[in-house]
């Protein structure tokens, strides 16, 4: 998502992170991963050079959805799961705005799953930040659609039996044109992904692994602990071979229709899968998204997919313009008097 360059101010950006803070007291639990995401967003937005009155943040319900109150732009804290639908109406009718959706794993994938997939397939020009903590926080600790099988919570005392969603796989399956993943605590990686998402024209989905230190603490610890993270994180860099393992000792190779991690030294270099987020075919991106399951053995972070497809709002606007160009702008009197008429 980005607003068109014509809307950008010609002067240098003058906003600072401080300008984007509101006077509202932030009410997330101390230690919540949401703080780090808020700081990264507030820190990064000024570099876009978009005036804050042109930015709108729409959220649903849940801890993450309090986000708009803490960002001094236009904002709406709406109802559970519906933020993508509301944002679709705004982004379609106001292509001059930069529209962000902030949502969580319950909001986006459970109650709002339908709106999420349809927004992605339409390629509405907006950026969706999906805070995934794999738990329901605001309702105090029930399992979510991204909780691992067997999750013991208040609502699943014997363990959950539902297969979870993989949000990146889901977004790719929903024809998303931009899909990325980042970690709340990785300020640099998160900022890079946000930058790429903001530059993308169309729907961008950014899954942000976010720690809920109250109900699901340490869910992503294996990706954060300096002792383990390098062995599990797979940093996706466009144009470079994808390497796995603490030392990058393994490379990814297609074998019998599957991506397999093999000792890089034993594989001809031309067989190594080179990351290409711009590939129109989502097959490799989807295969990469499956590396994560089920145990976070390998977790790719970065941009999975970033392809061009006409955005919904532009196509809709083009039809309005085309209709006017072909038959002239609407004439109300002519419309009302259309069809068979008679005079008395």
């Amino acid at each position: 998502m980005s607003s068109t360059t014509a809307d950008r101010p010609t002067t240098l950006p003058t906003l600072t992170a401080k300008d984007l803070k509101t006077d509202q007291e932030v009410r997330w639990c101390p230690g919540c991963g949401d703080y780090a995401i808020l700081a990264a967003v507030q820190g990064f937005l000024p570099e876009l050079g978009v005036p804050r009155e042109k930015m709108v943040v729409i959220s649903g319900i849940g801890c993450s959805s309090r986000f708009p109150y803490y960002l001094n732009t236009y904002g709406m804290h709406s109802i559970h799961g519906r933020a993508p639908a509301i944002a679709t109406g705004l982004a379609t009718s106001r292509p001059d705005l930069m529209v962000w959706v902030v949502t969580g794993d319950g909001d986006a994938l459970s109650i709002g799953g339908n709106h999420l997939i349809h927004t992605l397939r339409r390629n509405v020009n907006l950026t969706i930040l999906l805070f995934n903590n794999r738990i329901y926080g605001l309702t105090k600790g029930q399992y979510s659609p991204t909780s691992e099988v067997g999750k013991i919570t208040k609502s699943t005392p014997m363990g959950s039996v539902d297969q979870p969603f993989n949000p990146v796989s889901l977004a790719l399956g929903a024809e998303a044109t931009f899909v990325a993943r980042a970690l709340d605590s990785d300020r640099q990686g998160l900022t890079e992904v946000l930058r790429a998402a903001a530059a993308h024209q169309g729907s961008s989905l950014v899954e942000i692994y976010q720690n809920c230190n109250i109900y699901n603490d340490g869910a992503f610890e294996v990706l954060k602990d300096p002792a383990t993270r390098d062995a599990h994180l797979v940093r996706l860099v466009a144009g470079e071979p994808i390497r796995l393992g603490a030392e990058g000792e393994r490379g990814l190779v297609w074998r019998r229709g599957h991506l397999e991690g093999l000792d890089a030294a034993s594989v001809p270099v031309e067989d190594l899968v080179v990351h290409d987020p711009y590939d129109p075919d989502p097959t490799t991106a989807f295969a990469l998204s499956r590396l994560t399951d089920p145990s976070m053995a390998y977790v790719p972070v970065g941009v999975f997919r970033d392809v061009d497809r006409p955005t919904y709002d532009r196509q809709v606007s083009a039809q309005l313009e085309q209709a006017s160009a072909q038959a002239g702008p609407g004439d109300l009197d002519a419309l009302l008097a259309g069809g068979d008429t008679w005079s008395l």
């Binding site: 729409i58 639908a85 509301i86 679709t88 109406g89 705004l90 982004a91 379609t92 705005l97």
Partner: peptide, 12 residues
């Protein structure tokens, strides 16, 4: 989504 989008447009 129909009414949601309409409300989002009203906001705009």
């Amino acid at each position: 989504a129909g009414i949601g989008a309409a409300l989002g447009a009203s906001f705009g």
